[in-house]
């Protein structure tokens, strides 16, 4: 018998615990030549704001050992552009399409969340209070408990479906932040967004990124992400979605053992655009090899004595 892969994130029943992370999978169609996006447990689409944004100037990316820094800065068509141009092209996918919601002000988050709430085929939003690459809003909301509570509560009032909050790792105590947003009405948390970092060109003595600092992703951050998922999952009752440097099925299993109910694949999509199904198959193989009938029994299954 094939092991059961289904997991629940609040009201969402995911066919498997593998989702793709915001900003790394476009909206889905970008990867259709490589596999059918509907095989995924969920897809979190690019960060969406109230108005169209051009994002930061080039250069926006720096490669690092086992990772990369980005400073894209929420380039997107704005929520109205999303609803008009993109939503019709992705609403047929047979998976959970989740919109990552971003903003500079609480009002902007509310505006975007309200408009997305009206879309039949979007069962959840991921509130991005952790983008390190915008001057206003973003991470500023996610690095202090009072502001994280304020924006989560405000969105909770207008958003009736599953509300996921994506936490920033750029804090002293992430469990405290998770508790704060749980108390403010979040249904799940995504842990973690990128770590703030920078890259310097020694020859020119200049920063590599136009914004000087950017968000670090890739395997370089996996140990930090695992630690934070473990800390958060012990502190809160709502489900944790783990992400940060997952490249293989083994990486994904480690996140589940640390306490994640599901995982998101991010930067790995850039290295292997067909990685999604491989991770799903690899999780299934692991379960068979360990004679585990249901992936749910792995969640938080870390053995500590």
């Amino acid at each position: 018998m094939k092991p059961l892969l289904e997991v629940n994130i609040h009201k969402l029943l995911l066919k498997n615990p593998v989702m793709t992370a915001s900003g790394t999978f476009g909206y889905g169609p970008e990867f259709e030549d490589f596999y059918d996006p509907s095989v995924l447990g969920g897809i979190v689409v690019k960060g969406t704001t109230g108005q169209l944004r051009q994002g930061n100037p080039y250069p926006r990316m720096a490669e690092t050992p086992m990772g990369m820094l980005n400073a894209v800065g929420l380039q997107n068509k704005g929520v109205d552009g999303f609803i008009k141009d993109i939503y019709p092209k992705i609403s047929h996918y047979n998976t959970h399409m989740i919109v990552n919601v971003s903003g500079s002000t609480v009002e902007e988050y509310i505006e975007v969340a309200e408009k997305i709430n009206a879309l039949e085929h979007i069962p959840a939003i991921e509130l991005n209070i952790s983008c390190p690459n915008v001057k206003e809003g973003g991470m500023a909301f996610g690095t202090s408990c009072p502001s994280a509570i304020a924006v989560t509560q405000a969105v909770r009032e207008v958003y009736k479906k599953t509300l996921i909050v994506k936490l920033s790792p750029n804090v002293t105590n992430i469990a405290e932040m998770a508790l704060a947003v749980e108390g403010a009405g979040a249904d799940a948390v995504s842990v973690i967004n990128t770590l703030l970092g920078m890259a310097i060109d020694a020859e020119t003595r200049q920063p590599v990124l136009s914004t000087i600092t950017g968000g670090l992703s890739g395997p370089a951050i996996k140990p930090v992400a695992l630690r934070m998922v473990w800390q958060v999952s012990k502190a809160i009752k709502i489900p944790v979605i783990g992400l940060g440097g997952i490249m293989t099925a083994t990486d994904a299993i480690e996140f589940l053992l640390a306490g994640a109910t599901a995982v998101q694949i991010g930067t790995a999509n850039f290295i292997d655009p067909a990685v999604g199904p491989k991770i799903i198959a690899g999780i299934s193989d692991y379960l068979e090899r360990h004679q585990i009938a249901d992936v749910r029994s792995l969640i938080g299954g870390l053995r500590t004595s």
Binding site: G23, T24, F25, G26, E30, F31, K46, Q54, G55, P57, Y58, P59, R60, M61, A62, E63, M68, N70, V72, Q75, T267, N269, F270, P273
Partner: peptide
């Protein structure tokens, strides 16, 4: 030629400034 990550239009890292935006 620009520094790229994904190559398929997903990461939005390799933008160029055009008359119609990035």
């Amino acid at each position: 030629e620009q520094t790229m990550a994904c190559g398929v239009g997903a990461c939005l890292c390799c933008v160029v400034d055009t008359t119609t935006g990035h």
